[in-house]
Amino acid sequence: MRLINLGTLQLEEFFDRDVPPHCILSHTWGTEEVTLRAMGTMPIRGFCKIASQLGSTSLRYGWVDTCCIDKTSSAELSEAINSMFRWYSNAARCIVFLADVEIMPYKGDDRIVSEKLWADLQASRWLTRGWTLQELLAPRHVEFFDKNGGRIGDPDSLNFSISAATRISHDELHPDGWQKANIARKMSWAARRQTTRVGDIAYYLLSLFNAKMPPLYGEGERAFLRLQEEILKESNDLPILAPSAKGSAT
């Protein structure tokens, strides 16, 4: 597993038993997506700065999907997709950057801040993307920041806003809650979410159902059928076959 040294901004590699405590980033990348070969950009520097401040001297490493995974390697990409949920779950902290939310200009008037934040969260792209579903549910400690790096809150303080935007109930936003949800309920969380590739509609749901399967990019909707087959090996809950459970690709 590659991690970013928060002090040097250099990548270092660790094996499972040696992975140090680290902070993990959740973010909806746009045209500025960072790759393994393009470190040191503003999003990464901002993340590293906040991670360092949150963890003090005890948290010296961070993880960002696009620059800590070599996506040119199909084997590494497959391993990453099947390990992603575990990585987010094992991270000491998860920092969520909401690139389309900004609270700083409204600081000082609690009512305006509250109303503006509610509206922005309901419209935030992060709460409608496919991969961010597991990034919301998996981590033990999550903190949300706006586009300028201003702290917004955590899942407890933002519970009602996040629940309204995602249709995941208050109780289900906690590990003990979402893990108890049945198959149909988990599928319903994906109904309004979007992915860039059609296959990702299935891949980001793997860990929610404790399923394993290799990604085959280019297979399209066949990926969702394979996911259902994997789930049915452990359950005969046939309502999962309903096509309305699927999200959409954009």
Rank of each mutant, 00 (worst) to 15 (best):
G62F: 08
G218D: 00
A223F: 03
A80Y: 07
E13M: 04
Q10G: 12
L9C: 10
V113G: 13
L117F: 10
Y61K: 03
E13H: 08
T66A: 10
A191R: 15
I231L: 00
D154H: 01
D16W: 08
P214I: 12
Q194E: 15
L232T: 04
G108R: 05
E172Q: 15
E234T: 15
F160Q: 15
T66G: 11
K233A: 13
G220Q: 03
N236K: 08
L36D: 02
L173P: 11
E115F: 11
E33G: 05
K180N: 14
D16S: 13
A99D: 13
R86A: 12
E221D: 14
G55I: 00
L54I: 13
H174N: 12
H174D: 10
R86T: 14
T28R: 05
R111P: 14
A191S: 14
A211S: 09
N159Y: 05
V64C: 08
E102R: 09
W118Y: 15
S207F: 02
G46C: 03
L158S: 10
T196S: 12
R167T: 08
E219F: 06
H141I: 04
D110R: 12
D237W: 09
E13D: 13
R140L: 04
Q53W: 05
Q134C: 07
A138G: 07
A80R: 07
A99P: 08
I168R: 01
G220C: 04
F144V: 01
L98K: 03
A211L: 01
D120N: 11
I162M: 10
L208Q: 03
R60G: 13
M39W: 00
L11Y: 04
T195P: 07
E229R: 02
S114Q: 14
S188K: 06
V142G: 03
L54H: 05
P175V: 05
A119I: 10
Y204R: 01
I4N: 02
I50Y: 02
S52L: 11
L133P: 02
Y204K: 00
D176H: 10
Q122R: 09
F224G: 01
K246Y: 04
I24V: 11
I231V: 07
L137P: 09
L127H: 07
W189Y: 05
R197V: 03
R222P: 05
K49M: 09
N82K: 05
A165C: 08
I24R: 03
F47E: 07
V113E: 15
L173N: 04
L127S: 03
V101S: 02
I112E: 15
L117Y: 12
T132W: 11
L25Y: 03
L98F: 04
N210F: 07
F224I: 09
S248A: 13
F15D: 14
V64L: 06
R45S: 12
P20F: 01
W29L: 05
R2F: 09
T57E: 15
F160E: 14
C68F: 07
N148E: 12
N159P: 06
P215Y: 01
D154S: 05
S58N: 13
L6V: 05
G108N: 12
L137M: 10
D200C: 02
R60S: 13
G30S: 02
I168D: 10
M1C: 13
R125M: 07
N82P: 14
A249G: 01
L227C: 09
A119H: 11
A202R: 00
A184G: 14
I50T: 12
R222Y: 08
C68I: 06
Q122M: 15
